[in-house]
Design a protein around this nucleic acid. Structure first.
Length: 266
DNA sequence: TTAAGTGTTGCTCT
DNA sequence: AAGAGCAACACTTA
């Protein structure tokens, strides 16, 4: 679930904790830590404040008042929740940041495929991880997007999901974006030039923005998406919201793509 | 009961 | 060098 729209919602959750002084940190599962021990992380966080938050693709950064940035990734599932004092721990809360006021921020990660680490700053983490530009960043315009497509002979679905080329899109939203753009997932990227590339770029931005505004990542997020979204039907037996044809699936690199065989012509 | 499937990423092998 | 296969993990579905 956590692709760009969901992580953007988690960012808003983290923002609501800005300014609070961290009293202590509880790490229920050190396996989700990346490159730092539980003890060191607690030492580094204690007494600090979350000064600001940033997002790049599917990564969330909590920038600390005294330097250092907590870098979070949510894996194939996972979320961030603000928990009030006295409320029980959410299931699968692997790490919790307790604030002096009593509330806390819970990093939830059932499958333990996500990671939390401490970097000097977001830029350093981004460079090390080789993350491409965030697809919703204002500087990532249709020309930058078209240039990436022109430089790849791979299928468009893989290119959209390649975090080193552009960051934020995963299996779910790439299906939705290609559906909105009426493109077959196996279309070769460098065949999408000019108007076609621009059309796909606009579909990408609009789809992600719509998902964020629909409260993606909150509970029942999919049901709150517009009914013309493929995602509302993205399951075995689902039908195209546009023409009613049964959806079909193809596999690329082990990932299942859903598409409408009539609206997304090969 | 068991096995296969799943929203991600990163490694290995070709 | 790009792309396939698989492993990491926990849970759900067939």
């Amino acid at each position: 679930m956590p692709e760009l729209p969901e992580v953007e919602i988690f960012k808003q959750v983290a923002d609501s904790c800005r300014g609070g002084i961290i009293n202590h940190v509880s790490i229920a599962d050190p396996a989700i830590l990346d490159g730092i021990s539980a003890k060191d992380l607690e030492q580094r966080l204690k007494g600090q404040r979350v000064r600001s938050t940033r997002r790049r693709g599917k990564h969330l950064f909590l920038e600390l008042s005294g330097g250092g940035t907590l870098a979070m990734h949510f894996g194939m599932n996972g979320s961030l929740k603000r928990v009030s004092e006295g409320e029980p721990d959410p299931s699968y809360a692997r790490l919790q940041i307790y604030f002096e006021k009593g509330d806390r921020l819970a990093y939830i990660n059932p499958r333990r495929l996500g990671r939390v680490g401490l970097a000097e700053n977001a830029e350093a983490f981004i460079a090390k991880t080789e993350l491409g530009p965030d697809v919703l960043d204002a500087t990532f315009d249709s020309h930058s997007f078209a240039a990436i497509l022109a430089g790849s002979k791979r299928d468009i679905k893989s290119v959209l999901m390649d975090q080193a080329l552009m960051a934020g899109i995963g299996n779910i939203y790439s299906d939705e974006i290609l559906f909105q753009a009426r493109l077959f997932p196996g279309t070769v990227a460098n065949q999408l030039k000019g108007k076609k590339a621009t059309c796909l770029y606009r579909a990408m931005r609009k789809t992600l923005e719509t998902a964020i505004n629909s409260g993606a990542g909150s509970e029942r997020g999919v049901e709150r998406l517009p009914k013309e979204f493929l995602l509302t039907q993205r399951r075995p037996g689902g039908r195209c919201p546009h023409c009613g044809a049964p959806l079909e699936t193809v596999k690329h690199a082990g990932r299942t793509s859903y598409y409408c065989p009539r609206c997304q012509a090969n």
